[in-house]
Every structure is written in structure tokens, then in C-alpha cells.
Nucleic acid binder design. Structure first.
Lengths: 115, 115
DNA sequence: TATTAATGCATAGCCCAGCTAGGTAGTACA
DNA sequence: TGTACTACCTAGCTGGGCTATGCATTAATA
């Protein structure tokens, strides 16, 4: 997978994952790996800086938790983060539609009860 | 539009456009603008370096033509370029599907007589 | 008759996000 | 004892898309 494609969608996917439930770095990588059909192996060198960016930007907050002798840093989405997530989702759908337009790929999105 | 999203799809879209017919820089920007539903205004600082990269890589060849007092540099896709295009198209479809998977967006692609 | 917009090509250098590579540390199992 | 997995972090590289700039012609407009 050409990693350049990932540019711009990493934060979107992180926000999406933790919007469902607070999660920590390693678990986020596993969730994304799973939901992407084993496509995306998020690298630590991308993930942690992204999480720290999101925290600095106020889109997420964090707290430490100790379980089974393992320290985990949980991240949860903030109200501001939810708005950013919604905007990024729309941006992604629009972007993907535009690329597909150039490629002559027609698409139909099945959203909720939409069909 | 977050320009980072464009990373990795620019060459794909260029190859796609010139695979339909040889084209030149300015015309490529207009075609992409049009087919993307006015979403993508390719910048010259991205386009020309990308075209030169593709030419150096052997994916495209070029020739100059003079029309109405305007010199235009036409680019056409090579046999190697067609293979790269096919690979990049598949990579894009796979990538978009994976992102949509993470976002919980189901999709159906309408390809040719596929439906 | 200037001036602006549009058409057309090109490059130097900035920016920044994802990467590699390295570090630390606990648990589980062979 | 060593390997694999879990779990966090950061310094510094890389590369592609960007801004800004330069050059040149044609068409429209003030």
C-alpha cells in the first residue's frame, strides 16, 4: 500500500475509532487493521505523533490507566473533535467521489437506511 | 480541500486522463477540474514536476506542438504507463474501500455492466 | 493604449505528515 | 535465554504538493 495515500486520512480514522469508544495506541492500530480488512498497519511513528497533534489541537483528551501491569494511555474524542470528525468524513466522501469521477468510477454509498 | 489527501492520487489521475487521449499540462488541469466536479484545481507546482517524474520513469512520453501561436507539450501514456495505471487504479479502489471500512461506510461500485 | 485575464511552460525552495530506526519496559512461552 | 507480543515515545529522513516567481503569447477590456 502506497503510504502517500494515507496522508490526510490518518487523523480521520483515528478520530473515527475513538469516537466509538475511548481507546489506546496499540488497540487503535488493531482496530484499524481489522476494520480496514488487514490493509492498514498503522506505524507507531505515524500514530503517536498524530495522537499528540490531536491532543494539542484539542480534538482529543487522554488519561492513563494501569491494567495487568501494563500502562495504557487512553484517548477520547472531545466535542470539538466530533465536529472535526464530521467535517473530515464529509471531506473524505467528497474527495473519494471526485477521484472516482476522474477515474470514471461510478459509486453508490450505502449509508444507514439509505437503501 | 485538504491537499494532503491528494498525495498519491495525482499521478493516478494524470495517467488516467492522458490514457484517454494525449494531452498537455493546461488541458490536463481543465479535464481533471471538470471530471472531479470542480473539486481539484491542480497546481502547476504539482502538475509539471509530476509529469516530469512520469516521463523520467518511462510511464509517459512527450512531444511539442505549435497551435495558434501557442507551444504545447503533449504527453501520452506508454505501455509501461498503462500497467502502472492499472495497478494504481486497483490500489486506489482497495485503499478507498479500506478507509470506508474503517468509517463504517458501505459502498457499491458500479463498473461497466456490473449492475 | 495600457492593463488584465487567460493560456501555456518551468523551477527553486518551503512545508509537513508518514516513515524508519532506535530507545524503554513488562508479559508469556518455548 | 531468547523470541514474540504488548505498550509507549521521539529524532530525523523523505518526498510530494505547495507557494512564489519567471517567461511568453493571445484576447478582452478599461
Amino acid at each position: 500500500m502506497n503510504h502517500k495515500l494515507l496522508s490526510g486520512t490518518l487523523e480521520l480514522m483515528i478520530l473515527e475509532v475513538i469516537s466509538l469508544a475511548p481507546s489506546y495506541g496499540y488497540e487503535i492500530t488493531q482496530t484499524v487493521l481489522n476494520k480496514s480488512g488487514e490493509s492498514f498497519e498503522l506505524k507507531e511513528g505515524s500514530l503517536y505523533p498524530a495522537l499528540h497533534r490531536l491532543e494539542r489541537g484539542g480534538q482529543v483528551t487522554s488519561f492513563w490507566e494501569e491494567t495487568e501491569g501494563r500502562r495504557r494511555k487512553y484517548y477520547q474524542i472531545s466535542a470539538a473533535g466530533k465536529k472535526v470528525l464530521e467535517a473530515k468524513r464529509k471531506e473524505w466522501v467528497s474527495f473519494a467521489g471526485a477521484v472516482n469521477g476522474v477515474l470514471g468510477i461510478e459509486q453508490r454509498l450505502l449509508l444507514g437506511d439509505d437503501l
